[in-house]
Nucleic acid binder design. Sequence first.
DNA 1: GTCTATACTGAGATAGAC
DNA 2: GTCTATCTCAGTATAGAC
Lengths: 209, 209
Amino acid sequence: MSSAIQQPRRKSFRETQFEVREEAILEATNRLLATRGYEAMSMDEIAADVGVAKGSLYRHFDSKEALAAAVMVRLLRRTRAALADQQPGLPARARLEALLRWTLTERLAGGVPQLPSGSPSLQQALLAHRDYMDELMELSESVGALIRRAKADGELREDLRDEFVLYTLYARSCDPTLDFLKAGGSMSDEEIVDQMVSACLNGVAAGRD
Amino acid sequence: MSSAIQQPRRKSFRETQFEVREEAILEATNRLLATRGYEAMSMDEIAADVGVAKGSLYRHFDSKEALAAAVMVRLLRRTRAALADQQPGLPARARLEALLRWTLTERLAGGVPQLPSGSPSLQQALLAHRDYMDELMELSESVGALIRRAKADGELREDLRDEFVLYTLYARSCDPTLDFLKAGGSMSDEEIVDQMVSACLNGVAAGRD
DNA sequence: GTCTATACTGAGATAGAC
DNA sequence: GTCTATCTCAGTATAGAC
């Protein structure tokens, strides 16, 4: 790793060191946020997990809330990237389905923090967090556009409100059904994702499978 | 209320007083659990809400967890009662749909605590709570039987696992979509319930509405 | 910038008088 | 059994040395 790659402005060792550590902090927080949730997770745990002093965390992030928000922003960015990486030619409904599948897979792999109404205090903090709200707006805009397009294509039910569909897709990523089924152990991750995607699109009632 | 109704063993005034207060505690906790969630809700709040000293709460319930568990048990009992009150002649699928509708309506009315993976610590406590687990088993058995019956009737998809359908129905009662839509304010409670039930059974994709 | 040590707060639980 | 007052502890955040 000591072989220097030539770049316009090389960063100092300490700078990269700082960034590497910050990335480690985000990674650890992400993991804890996914497993234990916001309230249950403590700054002590994060510090211990990263192998850094608790006080040092506050050099990187002003507060626990700010740290959690940073993790959420990272997640939203990854999601938007996944969306942007899709083939542009793909029909809207297929893109929505692929995005849902991507989200569920990520979640089962353990990488997704419990965004939504997990913690009221965090929720409050996020609403005030500029970057987070911006990312969320952007993502919602993109997904909203796909929903409208899919409806126009006749691939989504017209009688369901756009917001309803948006939130429904959004909510699947934190559906406790995933945890229960994974904990049950009788279904593979792949099967869980398949059934979830299928049930979301086609419902649980018989008639068209 | 002072007109005594003749009964085999009349309870003393203090006994009924005690029970009335306990009911009030459960009611307040239920409300707080529904609005703020387990972690965010404090024993001080509950005490203040009921108009009782915090210490007195511990004469009724050993701990915060025990109190929350009691509320959950009450909810499960109410749910089982709602199920038992259905017309026995009703087809299985119709009964499942009605139960889902009942649950969602209750939730939107503000009466249902966030049961599921809301709090890991509470989750842990509930697993160890005898009454709660018993009630949960009973309810799951009843609903599971309905699911199998509905499948036999050709009214539910055979390719979805029983557990998957069970948890999916269960999860709808705590779906954050409900909160988002209610907060949005552009849909009536009735419309929210209708779309939720319909989407759960028939999915969001076009093809059979 | 990172460490150790500590201040401060909120909240669950208990003690003891009445 | 209910009250007031208190204990205890976890956890966020900060101070100060290096």
